[in-house]
Nucleic acid binder design. Structure first.
Lengths: 131, 131
DNA sequence: TGGACATATGAACAGTTCTGCAGATGTGCA
DNA sequence: TGCACATCTGCAGAACTGTTCATATGTCCA
């Protein structure tokens, strides 16, 4: 409902634009709102240091909850909550073995993003916010 | 302070581990806490749909604030706030021309991530949370 | 110089997110 | 069967994030 139709009508809507043509073409290229939201969701999952650490830990293979808690320094409860979220978004998958639950990365796209980001951060010394 | 030294001492610390060797090796591979946090910060910036939309809009070249506001549907104030954050993290840069401010993507890594993610989301139908 | 305009900023409020706690579920072993 | 263990879950408080509103800064033009 916020697509090019709106943009076409802008001349009457009195929203001043500096470069209306670019705006129209950018809007034409813009992915659907749902796709943007889904993509942002994925980034958002990676945007928490603890979850990111969990995922980095899983790059090499599966680990159980208590080992993940040890690696990340989180409580087991917090670890479980975090894993639940990741599971809900199909980023990780569980294999249950007796009373243990072994988690593994289950999304090739996320794996790529994590790999990429970590590699990048280790080389260049990352982005430095002005703080 | 949370590095391998801790992990070595775990046997006495009574934190039960299922696979202590893997934990140790994962910890050895784990990037420094600061790097994890910096990386998560970047993902976090991309994790908001409006900011992501701003960045997607900038993939093709610079745009001024009011055009960005039009594309994203944000108020100009909200747009400005968002851009400030992105600017603080050096993800975007400004060029001022008279009373206009033209923003552009200024981080190759972020550009790659955005490109990649958007391409991916448009092909496969993304991750569907169970909600 | 004064007023309109484009953008930036600060403060406050609202919505969301994360954590710990307490208790629930399900498994293995004596 | 009963107990210990590993994990999961709902809830409530704390912390964080994003928006709006009001105001400030700096630019252009008459």
């Amino acid at each position: 409902m916020n697509s090019s139709a709106d943009v076409q009508g802008l001349d009457e809507c009195a929203v001043r634009l500096v470069d209306p043509e670019r705006v129209t073409s950018v809007n034409a290229r813009m992915p659907a709102e749902d796709d943007i939201v889904d993509t942002a969701d994925v980034f958002s999952l990676l945007g928490d240091p603890r979850r990111l650490k969990l995922l980095v830990a899983l790059l090499d293979g599966e680990l159980c909850v208590c080992d993940l808690a040890a690696v990340t320094g989180l409580s087991e409860s917090a670890t479980s909550h975090a894993l639940r979220l990741l599971r809900a978004h199909r980023v990780v998958a569980v294999r249950r073995d007796g009373r243990n639950a072994f988690y593994r990365l289950d999304d090739a796209h996320v794996r790529m993003l994590v790999d990429l980001a970590v590699a990048h951060t280790e080389h260049t010394d990352a982005i430095h916010p002005e703080r």
